[in-house]
Amino acid sequence: MPAYSDKVMDHFMNPRNVGEIKDADGVGEVGNPVCGDMMTFYITVKDNRLDDVKFQTFGCGAAVAVSSITSEMAKGKTLEEAVKITPALVAKELEGLPKNKYHCSNLGAQALQEAIRDYAKKKGIKIEGLKEKGGEDEEGEECEAC
């Protein structure tokens, strides 16, 4: 088994916010089956805040835990605050990830950003701190398998 922290195992075994939001304000999909991980994030926005965040994930224990904690971190935040959730922050919140699972934390942060980008596009608004195009994160850490 990978050396997962207790917090990773907790979020894997009891993931928070699993599911789909039928009339989501924004949807973000990242990953591919070659890589082994796929995540879909759904958000609803009220008064510029993430009112609800849900996810669906195909992937390993780390991928599920990353999705779960990212959804928890994002919920209730303003859009400007939420786009500042980086892979490094996600990994830190999970009390660390095994080295070969870092790319999972990238996916979580990316999926959330994609959902917010989708919302911004639909509304025709600009959100401070939201990058133009998804894909890369600040650390430039790519999924080796992709």
Binding site: M9, F12, F58, G59, C60, G61
Partner: peptide
Amino acid sequence: FIEGEGMLLWLD
């Protein structure tokens, strides 16, 4: 529709 590691963790 699902990935192996998750099953391995639960089975363990």
